[in-house]
């Protein structure tokens, strides 16, 4: 009986909390949908322009400078900021050049006119993957693990 009485009170409290949260959410700013200025091709240093513009819960722009360390470990950044900060400069198709569920052409070949992009599987990777795959199969799994690419399946049965 007591439980029945307390439920409307809790529901009312929840509703008030939800309303208050919704009202506060209107004050939370959006990141822009696209970068307001066109950027040059190649890796960028966000902190060149954004050094002192960190606001609210936004991470420091310097953390997103596209150094080799950033590019090698971009998954840590993409996993928390891809739909907001990353998306202001990169279309999803940029990511899909390498990260896709069904590949038709290896990224390094698709982007052979852009050797500056660190596209994987460069050169004779058919031979090299027999060594790299034993060494670091987890890095293979991140893209191919649940994709069952036709070419993988041809040999890995």
């Amino acid at each position: 009986m007591n439980r029945l009485k307390i439920f409307p009170v809790l529901a009312l409290f929840g509703l008030i909390a939800l309303s208050a949260a919704c009202a506060q959410m209107k004050a939370l700013p959006n990141l822009p949908a696209t970068h307001p200025e066109e950027l040059a091709e190649g890796p960028v240093s966000c902190s060149e322009c954004h050094e002192d513009q960190q606001k609210g819960t936004l991470k420091p722009y310097a953390a997103f400078n596209h150094t080799r360390i950033f590019i090698q470990n971009h998954r840590f950044y993409a996993s928390t900021d891809n739909t907001t900060l990353c998306a202001t400069c990169h279309k999803v198709s940029f990511c899909a050049d390498c990260h896709t569920n069904k590949t038709v052409i290896k990224p390094a070949e698709m982007l052979s006119d852009r050797p500056d992009r660190m596209a994987p599987h460069r050169g004779d990777f058919l031979t090299m993957h027999k060594i790299e795959g034993k060494l670091d199969p987890e890095s293979c799994y991140r893209c191919h693990g649940r994709a069952n690419n036709g070419r993988c399946v041809a040999c890995h049965r």
């Binding site: 209107k26 939370l28 959006n30 907001t84």
Partner: peptide
């Protein structure tokens, strides 16, 4: 659909999810 505040957005269709440990 991108809402006007709080970086809120909703999607429908085929899309990638890359959130934390999820891919």
């Amino acid at each position: 659909y991108r809402f006007k505040s709080a970086n809120a957005q909703a999607k429908a269709g085929r899309f990638f999810v890359n959130e934390g440990i999820l891919n």
